[in-house]
């Protein structure tokens, strides 16, 4: 009960933020009806999806301050679980997606245990490596489609259980529901014991330990929560795209984008990952279709992101949200 109350309690936010949240919610609800094309709707779905990823990343990467660059492996676990269970055993999305989340939790716990013996850059590199290894395994694993990936069987009629719809609008509303669940969860998380403990670990890990905090265990918990979030998004990607392969759901690109968006928007803040996704998802789409024509320009998009994040973080390490807060503090 108290948990739910906390999740829905935005009283500690400024009036502007609360009004912003209401307007934003009205906008999201109305969006499919304002007559935009399918391209814009697809961008919106991506935006909500990456906000979800970013909010998950924010637990360990933002509040916990651990440079985590391996979230793609959990997108993959979520996506593959849903796809394979559907192809092999016709198991509906609403069963396979939670199973994917459980697998992600178990897997993240197992690799989190040794991973969090490492600190700083070593940790960051190790997260990249574990993700690359898993991707490599899937690229070579015949049983799960290897590099060719998996196509999901297309149902003739719309099917809620299997999350198959003719219109993107349905997918839009479903990802929106996930988005809000994530948002409310994070609203509670930031006020929870674990949230406070992680922020202390980020500030000063030795001091945190001296205050009775088992830093490694806290990090593992946060990492596991982050992985669960991301696996939900992965499962959604499978039913939304109806096709997955190790490149689309487990690539390093994806891991970096998730972390980058949250950092650009403002790590360790509730709105940060959402703001970051609002900037980078459209930019990503735009650059993708613009640069797509030029074969030699692969990677230019990442150069642009890198410059963006350097520009923002040179000014304010806490990203766009940090800049907003800085002005608010000055204004007072």
């Amino acid at each position: 009960m108290e948990t739910i109350k906390d999740a829905l309690d935005f009283r500690d936010f400024s009036k502007a933020e609360r009004i912003g949240l209401i307007l934003f919610t009205i906008f999201l609800l109305a969006f499919p009806w304002i007559g935009t094309g399918s391209f814009v709707k697809a961008v919106m779905i991506q935006f909500l999806l990456f906000s979800l990823f970013g909010m998950g990343w924010n637990t360990i990467g933002g509040y916990g301050g651990q440079v985590e660059l391996g979230k793609a492996q959990y997108v993959g676990i979520g996506a593959y679980t849903v796809s394979l269970m559907m192809v092999w055993w016709k198991i509906p999305f609403w069963v396979s997606m939670p199973i994917g989340v459980l697998i992600a939790i178990g897997y993240s716990f197992i690799i989190g245990y040794p991973l969090f013996r490492l600190k700083g850059h070593y940790f960051a590199i190790a997260t990249i490596c574990t993700s690359l290894v898993l991707q490599d395994i899937f690229i070579n694993w015949k049983l799960v489609g290897a590099a060719k990936g998996i196509e999901l069987p297309i149902h003739e009629h719309p099917d809620f259980l299997y999350m198959q719809f003719k219109s993107d609008t349905y997918y839009y509303y479903f990802i929106m529901v996930f988005f809000y669940v994530a948002l409310f969860y994070m609203n509670r998380f930031r006020k929870s014991k674990l949230g406070y403990q992680l922020r202390m670990i980020k500030d000063d890990e030795e001091a945190a330990e001296s205050l009775g905090i088992d830093a490694r265990w806290c990090k593992i918990k946060a990492y596991t929560i982050a992985s669960a979030f991301v696996a939900v998004g992965g499962g959604f990607m499978a039913v939304y795209n109806l096709y997955i392969d190790p490149y689309s759901v487990m690539d390093l690109d994806l891991s970096i984008k998730i972390a980058l968006m949250a950092m650009l928007g403002g790590a360790a803040s509730l709105w940060g990952p959402i703001i970051g996704a609002a900037f980078l998802v459209p930019l990503d789409r735009f650059l993708g279709s613009w640069l797509g024509g030029y074969k030699g320009l692969i990677g230019v998009d990442f150069m642009i992101y890198a410059m963006l994040i350097m520009a923002v973080s040179a000014y304010q390490p806490r990203g766009i949200w940090g800049i907003i807060e800085q002005f608010r503090r000055k204004g007072k």
């Binding site: 406070y196 922020r199 202390m200 980020k202 500030d203 945190a208 360790a268």
Partner: peptide, 12 residues
């Protein structure tokens, strides 16, 4: 540290 207020530090 810059991340937390005095109250938050003590709350931890």
């Amino acid at each position: 540290t810059t991340g937390m207020t005095v109250l938050e530090n003590v709350m931890v």
